[in-house]
Design a protein around this nucleic acid. Sequence first.
DNA 1: CTATATTTGTGCGTATGTATG
DNA 2: ACATACATACGCACAAATATA
Lengths: 78, 78
Amino acid sequence: MAEPLFDPSSPVPLYKQAADHVAARAASGELARGQRLPGEHDLAQEWGVAYLTVRRAMRELRERGLVTTVPGKGTYVN
Amino acid sequence: MAEPLFDPSSPVPLYKQAADHVAARAASGELARGQRLPGEHDLAQEWGVAYLTVRRAMRELRERGLVTTVPGKGTYVN
DNA sequence: CTATATTTGTGCGTATGTATG
DNA sequence: ACATACATACGCACAAATATA
């Protein structure tokens, strides 16, 4: 039932941990290119973090060029 | 007493209006280089917007290279 | 054309942590 | 020890864009 997944007491910000989590799964091929990620609200619940934290993680991933976000549609793996 | 300054009903996001406001004042020379801006909480009250909105405006300005933020000190005009 | 559902975007409030002076 | 200031994080609500029935 909802493992930790991320460590709130870590010096690494939660949003960064989350972004790294996605980045690692993309790098390993677990997330296929073109694949749509779950909605941000869903991810927040799934990860047990705040919506704002997911938004920051997505921004981080966009800035790294790992994903592309289309308003009203979703976020896709590049 | 506290004019609108920014228009919440505008299609332009508040944080962008705020960033543009600062950018314009910097470009006009009204804000001198090296000058420290008021604190984010103060700006939030002064502008009548939320703290997070100010934070977003500052982030916008940092990304544009117009200001530099030093944690524990303040935000300075470049 | 309208209505609805989904998803991202924006905004407010608050609390706590960290760094500097 | 204390004040100031930025950083991260939580919660909630509503608006805007997109797709579909």
